[in-house]
Design a protein around this nucleic acid. Structure first.
Lengths: 221, 221
DNA sequence: ATATTATTCCAATATTCATTAGAATATTGG
DNA sequence: CCAATATTCTAATGAATATTGGAATAATAT
């Protein structure tokens, strides 16, 4: 049978993709890369892996076509090969969350406290941005904001929150966003803003999701 | 840092899910299960794996929460734990297809010939079914049709195609569907129907995708 | 009860994978 | 050219995985 051989090849290829995603280290690397391109050294630092190991995992991701590389001077910058990776990663996360809700106390506690903050969906945020009745703040570090942010957002890194309060209008609702649905920056930001009397909520997803959806973003020159 | 430990746990859990999908054998098992529940023996037969090995892989899938089991008499029937697995699998397939388009001749040839048949999208099919201006045929084996099919479809297994032609109105467009975007049954069916003068096209996806979308299905009593 | 069938468990094998350390390569700045 | 830095390559280790054959368990039929 020839269809058997064809089938085997397809399943093998698909499994190779899934296998590349089947490592906590590589998932974390991809998570960082979803924010924008990084050098190997920076990736190693942000994930806490050794340089050698980081390089090895990046090689696997490259072979699986998940990332691309660009050499500039003595640095090698990696980036996601394709924004369509983001929804696939979210799918795996959602799958895991659903089945583990009853098993993993930690994740549940983490998620529950998050739901309490009544996150804003991406589509709703987009509508309200167009209507102009909401302020949007990006609470990631300045470097990530510069590398790319949702169009119309102002940069208020969590570490600078109190110092930059003047930039945030008091009379309008505020939406804070960060790296993604499991990033804690915006949760923390919303809590602090509420303490100061703001009507604040967090975006349900994050910058990578917005970008992957093809919605308007800006890059600082 | 406590957030580091929490992060590690999340990435580990996600990786465990991805790892469960990182085997061609398990992907094929899930593909079969997406059609409906099966006993271990049937799964082994349909995938060409040994019984022992099939059982072992099912155990892995069970541990990862991908499948559930039901015992009836001496048989154990497995089924997908959650229809939301289907879009995740499709995401991985699409990812692989995109990056391999230039690499894997086989997949490309396979996909190209398929695109030529101008597949109908699921949303379009649904509209046209409601409008009543299309005939829908299910070309999977009768047993799979009985276990569940798109509401309004008539059963015309590929093997029976010529014998059941009388059931298909000649004056209306026909849409054929089967197991999914990589299943060859509907491709073959469309080609044969066109030879006989039908205005035939294939559904882009398949029954599992339709079901996972929560759209109307029927089960034969 | 006993034989049969379906499935899982267990142990052993070959294979693949993650990680580390150290060497090798390539680029930049003196 | 030389020194410093960033990255990759190679080799080696231990851990995890896939597969197989045979035994064990459970339900059914005689």
């Amino acid at each position: 049978m020839d269809t058997r051989a064809a089938k085997d090849r397809l399943y093998l290829a698909w499994a190779a993709s899934a296998k590349a995603l089947g490592s906590p280290q590589r998932l974390e690397l991809l998570d960082v890369l979803a924010q924008g391109e990084r050098s190997v050294e920076v990736l190693a630092r942000e994930t806490g892996l050794t340089l050698n190991n980081t390089s090895a995992h990046l090689k696997v991701l490259k072979a699986a076509g998940m990332v691309d590389r660009r050499k500039e001077g003595q640095f090698v910058y990696y980036r996601l090969a394709d924004d369509s990776l983001v929804p696939v990663l979210r799918g795996i996360q959602a799958l895991t969350r659903r089945r583990q809700a009853e098993v993993d106390q930690l994740a549940r506690a983490c998620i529950d406290s998050r739901d309490v903050l009544e996150p804003v969906g991406a589509a709703e945020l987009r509508r309200r941005l167009q209507a102009g009745d909401v302020s949007l703040i990006d609470v990631r570090p300045d470097s990530e904001f510069s590398a790319g942010h949702i169009a119309g957002a102002i940069s208020v890194p969590l570490a600078e929150l109190e110092r930059r309060l003047a930039r945030i209008p008091r009379n309008r609702p505020v939406v804070a966003y960060c790296r993604g649905p499991y990033c804690v920056l915006s949760v923390e930001a919303v809590q602090r803003l509420r303490k100061r009397g703001y009507n604040a909520r967090r975006l349900e997803t994050g910058f990578p999701d917005w970008k992957a959806a093809g919605w308007p973003i800006e890059v600082s020159a």
